[in-house]
Simulated assay, not measured.
Amino acid sequence: MKYILILVIFVASLQLKWVSGTPQVPCFFIFGDSLSDSGNNNKLMTFAKANFLPYGVDFPDGPTGRFTNGKTAVDLIGDELGLEGYIKAYSSVEEEEILKGVNYASGSAGIRVETGYQVGERINMDEQLKNHKEIVLRIRTSIGQNKSMDHLNKCLYSVYVGSNDWMLNYFAGFAAFSTTPNAFADALITQLYTQLNTLYDLGARKIILFGLGPLGCLPMLNQQGKCSKYINDIMDMYNTKLRSLTYTLNNKYGNAKFIWINTLGIISPNNLQGLGLKVINIPCCGMLQALCSPLTIPCNNRADYAYWDNAHPTEAANKVLAQRAYTTHNPSDAYPMDIRTLAML
């Protein structure tokens, strides 16, 4: 009877915490590309835009600039964290909202400055960090130096970038003719290392580094419906280096924690199929090159599809990534811990 009473109290406490809706972190700052963009490209001169139907057909606010049918992985992680609403894009965030976080991600952007030039304007990682520095200064002005640093130290920071450096810069650019995949990966890691040090200097202490997904399985890059082993092997090589970078940064900064998410493993075709996604090699919407054609009617069974367009996952696939990044199912899902554990530190 005693143990039953303890169990009831424990469950009740969990329910109370859930009902209270207290966010697990005070703020969430998001860096990256179209996999995280929530509208920063809407006002840019670029072909990389998603502020029209059928994009956003399943999102509460309709088309917002998210490159999927519904929520992105970072939106869904925000849900897991108990955040109120979704983190606003830098281009539209109001002054009273910046303490909750800002989304700086930009479609077609990369680690390197030149990445994505083929499609027009974009906000690369260096520019995103400049925008974040401006937001940090505004927060300091608002609540003071000491209070702002304490606030920023408790926030979560998501860095999900690099796909375009490979898709638009290496495979579709000229880099493949002048360097090896290994050398290009080393160059990306070196530049990202500098960028992450800048992020640390601006107060970040809880940083999520998303590995790159199986780019060889994207509808635009797969080979007659089958994943390109050549491309995915390169992604595996790069992700190994990114995981090692996490180890290096954790050794360098004793008062910060960097974690790595095994995106390639989590959203592999075999794993997605095992979780009920039936269509893993073709897009759900009618295509205009890489993106959905405006105002076309997408597939009805969107929960069965892994890919929304030729380059971006559906909300269903994003949900798989978000849930296993937040709470790992396998030890290989995250290193050295998952997002839920990082948020509690």
Rank of each mutant, 00 (worst) to 15 (best):
L5T: 15
L5R: 15
I9T: 11
Q24C: 07
C27Q: 04
D33Y: 00
L35E: 09
D37Y: 06
F52R: 12
V57K: 15
D58E: 10
N69A: 10
K71G: 01
V74W: 05
G82R: 04
E94C: 14
L99D: 06
Y104E: 06
G116D: 06
Y117Q: 13
Q118K: 11
G120S: 12
I123N: 07
E134V: 13
T141K: 15
Q145G: 07
H151D: 11
N153T: 11
L156T: 03
L156S: 00
V159T: 06
Y160R: 12
S163F: 02
N164Y: 08
M167R: 15
M167F: 10
L168K: 10
A183P: 00
L196Y: 07
T198G: 14
Y200D: 09
G203N: 09
G211P: 03
P214Y: 04
L218P: 03
Q223M: 04
Q224I: 02
Q224V: 10
I231R: 04
I231F: 01
M235V: 01
K241D: 06
S244L: 00
L245W: 03
T246P: 00
N255L: 08
N255Y: 04
N262R: 05
Q273D: 13
P283K: 04
P283S: 07
P283D: 08
C284K: 01
C285N: 04
L288W: 04
A290W: 12
N301Q: 13
N301E: 12
R302Q: 03
D309I: 12
N310K: 08
A316V: 01
R324M: 06
N330Y: 14
D333W: 02
D333P: 03
P336K: 08
R340E: 12
T341V: 14
A343E: 08
M344K: 15
